[in-house]
Design a binder for these strands. Sequence first.
DNA 1: GATAACTTGACAATGATTCTCATTATGAAT
DNA 2: ATTCATAATGAGAATCATTGTCAAGTTATC
Lengths: 130, 130
Amino acid sequence: MTSTEPTLRPTRQRLAVAAALEQFSDFRSAQEVHEALRATGDNVGLSTVYRALTAMADAGEIDMLRSEVGEAVYRRCSGSHHHHLVCRTCGATVEVEGPAVEKWTRAVAAEHGYTEVSHTLEIFGTCSNC
Amino acid sequence: MTSTEPTLRPTRQRLAVAAALEQFSDFRSAQEVHEALRATGDNVGLSTVYRALTAMADAGEIDMLRSEVGEAVYRRCSGSHHHHLVCRTCGATVEVEGPAVEKWTRAVAAEHGYTEVSHTLEIFGTCSNC
DNA sequence: GATAACTTGACAATGATTCTCATTATGAAT
DNA sequence: ATTCATAATGAGAATCATTGTCAAGTTATC
């Protein structure tokens, strides 16, 4: 089957959302991105920000994770698969890779007969500045 | 400082919530637990179910994690620290332990100067029955 | 059994996220 | 360039999980 997904168009709004994320180094919620855009005069509807972010996350262009309170937060992505070490206080984020962990999750899943495996792994802590 | 938390009382409602969780082997949301209680005639207010679940989770008596869509789901707990391998389709859950992972997260955090470390790690997949 | 503190529950209030749908913009093909 | 089919937008309504409110009910203690 060829892709059933509609083609994404690089509209002013989507470019603005992408540009906004470039300015941040830590995770931001859709609401925060929307607010940041309004502040710079780039008016983009809230619904559109939500749509742009989820689309970009689905396409693997940005990272998405859930904060400890369950809100979806996004961040520009470095490309390869990795996890995050996030400061609980100031939000400072460090990208970390763990080949061993990847291997382990795959092994554990296989051992129990699970397929199509995905996983979430986030580390929260207090950074040295806080 | 001694505990500032008020003492928890084993009320009918809290016992009912605990008993309900005992009957399930997989993760359930507060709404689902509430519905299950209503079905058996145990009438417990929705707010109370929420309060009981969060209190039990805070006390470490049950596990809480966020489903892929961000809802809080709970499950009776086996005691020691562990993670979960959850079937995306039927919810079947396997508890898994990974000393290596625990060690790794601690090491990574320390390496970057992060303290008071906690982490979330959940594995999602499709079990052999689905 | 009087009392102070903890609980409960019905319902309102939040707040993030999604949906609706009329209008507009985009890309490809004339 | 003009047309056309389709994707995208935005304002606001609609969802839905979760939390807050507060008066009335319980519980442990003295």
